[in-house]
């Protein structure tokens, strides 16, 4: 908030500094009055206790200052409440205990890409967020980019964010929502326009390549062949990419129950309860903005997420062996 990175948070920052300054000024007056009341000369004391001082200091001053502040504050932050044009880029963000589901929408409102705990936006362009909640009241807040907005079950609230420089900006849930509220975060990443277009094209390409929503029959066949220990004769592009370790990581993911809650586009994993893992390997963080994302933390999270974030909906998979955990983590790292 005190380091604004966009037009909306800029205004909030100006208002915040004005309030700090005014608060300091009023405190100084009160302290001075207190000093007069205790140690000041008798004449001053009498004036301070007079009816006139009460009318000026107690009624006129706060009345004028607060009214002026209200009018100025509302004018200053008018851009926060401007009506939504309707042609802005839209992203739906759903608060869940304790992570953020992120869905990129097209102009018709259909979901184009799904992700979690990470929001990619282009700079210098207002982005409208459709905020929803799957369980309790959460609040969406990226201090660098805008004010807070509640995410209310059964209701859709809209919030506009905009960045005027590229960068990674941390966000949090700003409304107490249960035991792990403090560990419910995300990252907003603002890209330069051209970088953003490249990023989006790469994602769309990948979804097209893996055949989103249509688990490739060939791929499944390949996985089965590899699992039974037979050499694959399929000359699929995937075969050259995936060494044995990756294939078994994939199989373990499907067989250990991960796929019941997590979706990975282009595979038979289509669970919707937990975060979409189609792009998990490219995320900055793990566990909803709380851990760096690499093989080590992936192993730690899969094997024992309950020690890291007690009470989260994912059980600790400590029944898996070290090799199995590593195989799954290695495969997930490839899901960019």
């Amino acid at each position: 908030m005190l380091d604004p990175a966009g037009p909306y948070s800029q205004q909030v920052t100006v208002l915040a500094w004005a309030l700090f300054g005014l608060g300091f000024f009023v405190t100084a007056i009160v302290v001075a009055a207190l000093w007069i009341a205790i140690k000041g000369p008798a004449g001053w004391k009498a004036k301070l206790g007079g009816e006139r001082a009460v009318w000026i200091g107690g009624v006129a001053f706060p009345g004028v200052v607060l009214t002026a502040l209200l009018i100025w504050g509302l004018t200053l932050t008018a851009n926060l409440t401007e009506p939504i044009r309707g042609d802005e880029m839209r992203i739906r963000v759903t608060g869940e205990m304790w992570w953020f589901r992120v869905q990129y929408l097209d102009q018709s409102g259909a979901v184009v890409m799904e992700d979690a705990n990470e929001i990619h936006i282009p700079v210098d362009q207002p982005v409208v967020l459709e905020l929803e909640s799957a369980d309790v009241i959460h609040s969406f807040w990226v201090p660098h980019l805008s004010g807070k907005k509640d995410m209310i079950p059964g209701r859709r609230t809209l919030l506009r964010i905009e960045a005027d420089r590229a960068g990674e900006f941390g966000g949090v849930c700003a409304e107490y929502c249960g035991g792990q509220h403090a560990l419910m975060g995300f990252v907003a990443i603002a890209h330069e326009e051209s970088d953003y277009r490249r990023w989006r094209a790469a994602r769309i390409d990948r979804l097209a390549l893996v055949g989103d929503d249509e688990p490739a029959q060939e791929e499944q066949q390949l996985a089965k062949t590899e699992r039974s220990g037979m050499a694959s004769t399929t000359s699929s592009a995937r075969a050259s990419i995936e060494d044995a370790g990756l294939v078994s990581g994939r199989d373990l993911f499907m067989e250990s129950g991960c796929a019941a809650c997590h979706r990975i586009a282009g595979t038979e994993a289509n669970g919707l309860a937990g975060p979409d893992l189609t792009h998990v390997g490219s995320r900055r963080t793990l566990g909803a903005g709380i851990l760096p994302n690499h093989r080590g933390t992936l192993i730690g999270w899969i094997g024992d997420s309950q020690s890291i974030k007690p009470g989260n909906r994912m059980p600790s998979y400590d029944m898996l062996s070290a090799e199995e955990l590593e195989a799954i983590a290695t495969w997930l790292e490839q899901q960019k």
Partner: peptide
């Protein structure tokens, strides 16, 4: 580096992983 994901480490309040 997130070492705490798997290890309890004195001086690190969170996380204190036990994998």
């Amino acid at each position: 580096a997130g070492c705490g994901s798997c290890h309890e480490i004195p001086g690190l309040d969170w996380p204190a992983g036990r994998l």
